[in-house]
């Protein structure tokens, strides 16, 4: 599936909640809970994305010209957001990852997680995902 297609799928998945933010967050929490995202051995100090209240770990690998992301976070809401990002960006070509605008975050009403003051590491994680993808192009 292409990046935009996954984004569309997520938008539809969240549409049923309408304005009910509680339901939306419960879904996000479920997403976070359902995913063991990263191998324990990868949860190392070096893989922590620093400077965030919630610790986020990210691992990137290139296989068959596609980037495979695995990640984890210690806060469940952050983990839900991380799960969404991994779902959208993993197993994609590095070029497409670098270009991805990720507008679905705004559309589904979770834009607050991208604000620089959220201190939840999501922005740093997206930057890291793109930087890793860029490094695979070179």
């Amino acid at each position: 599936m292409k990046i935009e297609e996954t984004e569309k799928e997520i938008i539809e998945e969240f549409e049923i909640f309408g304005d009910d933010w509680e339901a939306k967050y419960e879904h996000l929490i479920d997403l976070g809970r359902s995913l063991p995202l990263i191998k324990e051995e990868f949860k190392t100090e070096e893989r922590i994305i620093k400077g965030c209240q919630s610790r986020v770990w990210l691992n990137s690998e290139l296989r068959d010209s596609k980037v495979f992301f695995t990640a984890d976070a210690d806060a469940i809401i952050t983990k839900g957001m991380v799960a969404l990002m991994v779902r959208v960006l993993s197993e994609q070509k590095p070029e497409d990852i670098v270009k991805a605008k990720l507008e679905f975050v705004d559309t589904v009403g979770l834009k607050e997680h991208l604000s620089p003051t959220r201190a939840n590491g999501l922005v740093s994680m997206i930057n890291k995902m793109k930087a890793d993808a860029l490094a695979f192009i070179k």
């Binding site: 967050y25 209240q53 919630s54 210690d74 806060a75 469940i76 809401i77 952050t78 201190a119 939840n120």
Partner: peptide
């Protein structure tokens, strides 16, 4: 995590 409590 305190972050989750604070966010909600």
């Amino acid at each position: 995590h305190p972050f989750d409590v604070g966010t909600l």
